[in-house]
Design a protein around this nucleic acid. Structure first.
Length: 809
DNA sequence: AGCACGCCGACT
DNA sequence: GTCGGCGTGCTC
């Protein structure tokens, strides 16, 4: 018996292993097996196929063992993995790496120990070898990393090889298990109540240990047979040492028990009353689902899409099915789960990459067993092994965070959910306040059913949007530190009414550039082609691409002058300015720097919800779907940076982002206000925004796309080439583009030097494609591109060029 | 991806 | 002779 397995590596194809007789009964598709791969490494690999065909060109190795008692994913999910590898042009091992929770992905570690069978001749050892010898005497077993640390050698390979040949050491590979169950201490009673004499004896024996006596008394009073130690300590107000003393005396026994990290709890029911609009939307959606149609729920911000989802979820629960609820941003999952918990009487879980890996593994298992019915998650949750999926909800469908960029697989969870819904015969609903052109076009073409909700919940009017002309304000000197006087007044009015303000600035840090006073040349990163950003809290210049840090001092690279000024502005500086402009208000900042940790972010959101913060300054993180009831003013300090992005989706992004931003203003009972500052106030996007006219935006934008054959009329794909040498990268990208242009003609763009052309000492070139969207030709075109890349690699000079493929950029 | 292996230059 | 860097090929 042979099996084809997926190894967690970026290598093409499956690998075939032989299954020894005694393991044959255990083998099943979707289980993990331990395999030797190459001379040294051991991996946990996933069984993808079972076969009796004998491989021709090689002798397969046997598997070491079967790691799982039951499959950890179904054949359907393996089908999805396969689809991803083909569609996104990556290796299936990379899909495995993205899909499985880290604790399932085991690799080996080399352990070094003394060779017991030989005498060691110390005189034959050099200095580094002697260091290892000494360390081994102290610690019987060392890892390769230990040896690296001890010797501070960069490469330890020669040293280990030499020590083996001198018969000093032996090496062994060991699988490292990453999953650790969570334990809880339990206290079990060891004395009996029956003999009163004995009981007295015990208590008397504790005469000088009052606290211990109290514990015993508590156990007697409550007739405790066993109790969680934590609870015992809490109830008796004692300390761990006091309980431990009783353990030592043999009166109680201590036991470590495995407990679930992911707690399944059923919560209380609270009924939501639906508006007429929600009821009718719900009815239509259900009808469409009966016809197996995918639905686009197009609802203005604050129209109450979540309640509609909740009702749909209830329906699935009744049928005993599972639901996947996808959101673009990790930060949103908690808010949604809190809301769902109030109204759904079922088992709920959260899943995203910021979640601890042991938790993720336990959640995975509960989804697999069907114990968990509803999972709210970010993009990686599409990989969860649902066995009985009934519905997928993709909210804020247009959001760019559903697409993964690095590493491969560069998938879009929104698009994957179409495939997942198809293979698991589940219903699918997309939600958006300003749908992506792709999805909306599908709806117009009747491929999806379009359900609209045009009124805001409680009939709150849409926010009033004001575009402020920065050119004009600058000319008339009506601007103070990036805030126009109009905006300052509006903020003051809002604060006076005890309402909250959100200031949106899509840039982290203090000031994006540190510019030479003499020649205006900025300080740049030494290994990337970007200007460094000043971070005040560290007092350093930081590269946002490679995290390179440097001091402020030093001369200008271009003219050698040494006086620099901060130019432009980021969230950190805006926070500081806001603090001085509005000194009565409490100002806080939310961006990737302040909310790196889960708790940091959550406490910030909580404080803002509780009105402990008056002004929140943030990057796009603050704009994504948060419901803050008391926010009545939202300000965008400079909309121009987003307007001029060199990307065919720039207008769409700005429109969606500004729609989303303005959706944060005025959510309950009152109309909110949105102030947008721009040097180009007559731009069409502002007009559409002011009139809340998605259709007008769509009509203009879709014309453009059609004219230039951009998505949704074609499929976009990017090849990125990287190399250290500038001349090689130029030659290679020209060579490849010329090979491909014969076939693609006008639909090949480039090679072009990207906006950021140099990252971590690598030069970058882009070649973009507009592929025909017909499924079959799409496949052929991708295959053709792969072949030509192979052809390029045949040229000796281009062998070390790194190629990255990105489908549906 | 990670490792083996070979080749080469720097240094002692 | 030793160390480290780099290119290349291979993994059932």
């Amino acid at each position: 018996l042979y099996i084809k397995v997926i190894v967690p590596l970026a290598v093409p194809n499956f690998f075939t292993y032989y299954v020894p007789e005694e393991l044959q009964a255990e083998i099943e598709i979707g289980k993990r097996v331990e395999v030797q791969f190459g001379a040294k490494r051991i991996y946990a690999a996933v069984v993808a196929e079972i076969t009796q065909e004998v491989p021709k060109d090689y002798v397969p190795k046997p598997i070491n063992s079967v790691l799982d008692e039951a499959p950890i994913l179904s054949q359907k999910h393996l089908q999805l993995w396969n689809w991803i590898a083909h569609y996104y042009l990556c290796h299936i091992g990379e899909v495995m790496l993205a899909a499985l929770p880290a604790s399932y992905k085991l690799t080996s570690e080399t352990k070094v120990s003394f060779n017991e069978n030989s005498e060691i001749d110390l005189s034959r050892l050099n200095d580094n070898e002697f260091l290892v010898y000494e360390a081994l005497q102290a610690n019987k077993i060392l890892t390769v990393k230990d040896i690296k640390d001890i010797t501070s050698l960069k490469s330890v390979y020669h040293l280990i090889k030499s020590l083996i040949s001198k018969q000093v050491i032996e090496v062994e590979e060991e699988l490292i298990y990453k999953y650790k169950p969570k334990y809880e201490d339990w206290i079990i009673r060891k004395f009996s109540f029956e003999e009163e004499d004995k009981l007295h004896q015990i208590l008397d024996g504790l005469n000088r240990a009052k606290k211990q006596q109290e514990i015993i008394n508590y156990i007697i009073a409550e007739d405790v047979k066993e109790i969680a130690k934590k609870k015992l300590l809490f109830e008796t107000r004692t300390t761990s040492n006091q309980v431990n003393a009783l353990v030592a005396k043999g009166l109680v026994h201590l036991e470590k028990r495995i407990i679930d990290r992911v707690k399944i709890e059923n919560t209380a029911l609270k009924k939501d009353v639906l508006t007429e609009q929600q009821k009718s939307a719900l009815k239509t959606i259900k009808q469409q689902f009966q016809d197996n149609k995918t639905v686009l729920l197009f609802g203005v911000t604050s129209s109450g899409k979540t309640q509609v989802y909740t009702e749909l979820i209830k329906e699935q629960i009744k049928l005993g099915k599972q639901v996947l609820y996808l959101l673009p941003e990790i930060a949103l999952t908690n808010q949604i789960i809190k809301r769902l918990k109030k109204t759904l009487n079922t088992t709920l879980g959260v899943y995203h990459s910021n979640y601890n890996s042991n938790n993720r593994l336990e959640l995975w298992q509960k989804v697999l067993k069907g114990e968990l019915k509803v999972v709210v998650g970010a993009r990686s949750a599409v990989f969860l092994p649902f066995t009985n999926l009934g519905l997928i909800i993709v909210d804020e469908e247009y959001d760019g965070s559903f697409k993964q960029f690095d590493p491969a697989p560069r998938y879009n969870a929104r698009d994957l959910s179409v495939i997942l819904a198809h293979i698991s015969k589940a219903n699918l609903i997309f939600g958006a306040a300003s749908p992506s052109l792709e999805i909306y076009t599908n709806a117009l073409n009747k491929k999806y059913a379009l359900v609209e909700m045009k009124e805001r919940f409680g009939n709150v009017a849409l926010p009033e949007i004001e575009i402020i002309d920065l050119k004009d304000a600058t000319r008339k000197n009506k601007i103070r530190n990036y805030f126009t006087l109009e905006l300052i007044e509006a903020i003051n009015e809002t604060l006076a009414k005890k309402e909250q303000v959100i200031i949106f600035q899509n840039r982290r840090g203090y000031a994006p550039a540190y510019v030479c006073d003499n020649c205006a040349y900025p300080k740049k990163c030494v290994q990337c082609d970007v200007t460094l950003t000043y971070h005040k809290y560290m007092d350093l210049l930081v590269c946002h691409l490679c995290h390179f840090k440097t001091q402020l001092e030093g001369n200008c690279k271009q003219c050698n002058h040494n006086v620099f000024t901060l130019r432009n502005f980021g969230t950190e500086q805006i926070e500081e300015i806001a603090k001085t402009l509005f000194d009565e208000a409490k100002v806080a900042r939310m961006d990737a720097d302040t909310s790196r940790s889960k708790s940091g972010r959550e406490s910030l959101i909580e404080q803002f919800e509780n009105n402990e913060i008056n002004i929140l300054v943030g990057t796009q993180m603050v704009t994504k779907g948060f419901d803050f009831d008391n926010v009545s003013l939202v300000a965008v300090l400079n909309a121009d940076a987003m307007l001029h992005f060199p990307d065919f989706r720039a207008t769409e992004r700005v429109f969606q982002q500004l729609m989303q931003v303005s959706g944060r203003a005025g959510r309950r009972n009152k109309q909110g206000r949105v102030f947008i500052q721009s040097y180009e106030p007559s731009h069409l996007v502002f007009k559409w925004l002011k009139t809340n006219d998605y259709k007008a935006f769509y009509d203009v934008e879709i014309m453009d796309r059609s004219l230039f054959n951009y998505p949704p009329y074609s499929r976009f794909m990017q090849i990125q080439l990287k190399h250290k040498s500038n001349s090689i990268i130029n030659k290679a990208s020209d060579y490849l583009a010329n090979l491909l242009r014969i076939h693609f003609g006008q639909n090949l763009l480039g090679p072009s030097i990207p906006f950021i052309s140099y990252v971590r000492n690598y030069n970058i070139r882009d070649i973009n494609f507009k592929l025909s969207k017909n499924q079959k030709t799409l496949k052929d075109q991708k295959q053709y591109i792969l072949e030509k890349i192979e052809d390029m690699k045949q040229v000796k000079e281009f062998k070390s060029v790194i190629v990255r493929l990105n489908v549906d950029v």
